[in-house]
Amino acid sequence: MTHEIHLRDEFGPRLSDGSEAYRFRVSKIDPYLAICDQVVLDFTGVRSANSSFVNALVSGLFEQHGEETLGKLVFRGCLPTIQVLVQAAVDLGIIKHAERVA
């Protein structure tokens, strides 16, 4: 089963509030990662994002579940600047997961 989350519908075209992103991750993404084969975070229509938001949304997923999350999570429709932030958040989360496990 694939679960799709359309961030533009949830937050509008600009994503900047890390607290909002954290609450959303805990309540609307984490539970689906456990029960779905794939979770799609769809950034289509999102014009701007900052690292506060993207790290709070994405980094914790990888910190908690590790690199295996790469196989479950798909990022769709990212503008190039947003893609840089997403990849940075993924890297950061995986590094932290490795530190926790070590």
Partner: peptide, 15 residues
């Protein structure tokens, strides 16, 4: 600013 990790597998991005 963010250190490279040992296994730099990219996240999956779709258009």
């Amino acid at each position: 600013e963010i250190p490279l990790r040992a296994s730099p597998n990219s996240a999956t991005f779709q258009p």
